[in-house]
Structure formats: structure tokens, C-alpha cells
Design a protein around this nucleic acid. Structure first.
Lengths: 130, 130
DNA sequence: TATAGTGTAATAGTTAAATAGAACACTAGG
DNA sequence: CCTAGTGTTCTATTTAACTATTACACTATA
């Protein structure tokens, strides 16, 4: 996995797992890969995986059972709440950043709409073959 | 100044200065505060300020003149281009993150619009993502 | 030419993140 | 009971970021 060297790896692993949980790739009650396996998959040390998990366990997003494995919480309300928080924090962040750049509320929405509209449209990349 | 302990301080200073430059708080050709003054203002070490500046100088966003001071570039095209890049990277980032959470294009725009509309009532959401 | 104000560089020490490796604690199944 | 698979903890080491401090290089000006 590719990591951003500006953010601690354990923190990026936490984010990575959040997305797996919140998108249902890991469903409520599902067993996570073993910590040693995750460490191999992510090409990091077991302790780094454990550090990420320890925080998620403290938050009760992950339920740890010694000798058995780590499991996604079955509390669906909690998961829905987490997803809402995540969406909101993303929106708040982008809003703040663009607002700081002096874009008005309507310009912010318009620029996002424009980005989405043009996203699929052909960029000016060089065409190599058909 | 408040710093996010998940990101290197020198990098946050760089971002901070970018915003000052791109919003015109520091106009093209303007002299920046002295490095020692910036260090005091931001309550960090001079070397940390210098590290941020060194990168911006390498990019020619800041022009350094030994004995005189650091100055914002007068190349307005460059500044406009930087601002466009910054806006686009913000939009791309939030789009990708929300898309990963299985929100459709229209849901993404709608959620932003909803956030702006309801912005008056502050939530205290914990920042989860990078 | 002396001095204050500026950027720049170098050294040394502290801390947090990450690694490697080992050991310990518990569970399930043969 | 033994063993393989699991989570958990600990020690030691390395590296990057940050700090403190000092010194050097250059500019303007009194």
C-alpha cells in the first residue's frame, strides 16, 4: 500500500480500515484479517497495525477477542454515526479551505459541480493509441 | 498558532503561507515578515520556518534576497496557476473520499449544499480522515 | 565603518514513529 | 494435552522532525 509520508502510517491504516468498514467491504460482525496478515498485506510492522487497531478498539468500532480475532462492531447505529461524521468532516474541511481562498458559498458548490461535470470529459493528455 | 500533530509543522507553515499568498493577504512582490519574527508569531523554531521557506523558494513562489528579506513572487500567472491547482486538489480529494463512501455524484453535491445551508449550527465532529 | 536587520547554515539534543524480534495470553480442534 | 492460530506486550534500535544555540553572509544606513 502507498502511504503519504506526511501522515503517520498507523493513522493512515486507521483511515483505511474505517473506509473498509463504512463501505461494507467489512460488514458488521465480520472478522478482520489477522494482525500479522494485515501487516504483510500493508507491508508494515505488526506493531504499527496494532497501534491503529488499539485506537479503533478503544472507540469500539472494532471488537477484539483475544485468541479469536478482531471483529467489526455489530452496532449499526454506531457505524451510521461514524459515516455521517466522516462525511461531515470532509465537507467541513473542503468548505473551510475553499472559503479561505475567498470563494463564496455558491462558487464553492459551483466549482464542485464543474469538477464533477468535467471529470469524465477528456483531459488534454496525449493520446497514444486507439 | 495551532498545529495538527498528524502533519509536520514545517509543512503546515508552508500551507499557511500559501494561503496568505493566494488570498492576497501577502500581495505579489510583498515582503514577508522576517524569519525570526515568523518564528515568534508561529511559536516555532527559526529552522522550522526556514525549512518551509526553503521549499517555497525552490518553487519560486517566494524570492529570497539575503540581507533584505523574503518576497512574494511577482509572477501573477504562477500565483493564479497555484491557486487553481490548490482548488482542484481540494475538490478532487473530497470527491474521491465521498465517492469511496459510496455517495453518488449528485449525493456529493447535495450533501455539500446541505452542509452549507445548515452550517449555522456548529457540530463538534471529530476529524477522522487524513 | 560600525551596527542593526536580514537570510542561511551547522551542531547537538529530544521526541515520536516505525521497525525487528521475542515473548506472553488465549482459543479452537485433533 | 498439544499445537496452530490468534491478539497483546515489551525491549531495543533507527530515523525524521523539532528545538536550542551559535555562527556566518549580506544589506542598508547612521
Amino acid at each position: 500500500m502507498k502511504f503519504d509520508d506526511k501522515v503517520p502510517i498507523y493513522y493512515q491504516i486507521k483511515t483505511y480500515l474505517y473506509y473498509d468498514v463504512l463501505t461494507g467491504k467489512l460488514k458488521p460482525g465480520a472478522k478482520l484479517p489477522a494482525v500479522r496478515q494485515l501487516a504483510v498485506d500493508l507491508t508494515v510492522n505488526v506493531n504499527t497495525v496494532q497501534r491503529a487497531l488499539t485506537e479503533m478498539i478503544a472507540e469500539k468500532t472494532i471488537i477484539s477477542q483475544r485468541g479469536k480475532g478482531n471483529f467489526v462492531t455489530e452496532d449499526q447505529d454506531k457505524l451510521a454515526q461514524l459515516k455521517e461524521q466522516l462525511v461531515m468532516s470532509q465537507l467541513a474541511h473542503v468548505y473551510d479551505q475553499l472559503h479561505r481562498l475567498n470563494l463564496s458559498d455558491s462558487e464553492i458548490v459551483a466549482s464542485l459541480q464543474r469538477y464533477i461535470d468535467q471529470k469524465g470529459a477528456p483531459q488534454d493528455v496525449e493520446r497514444i493509441s486507439d
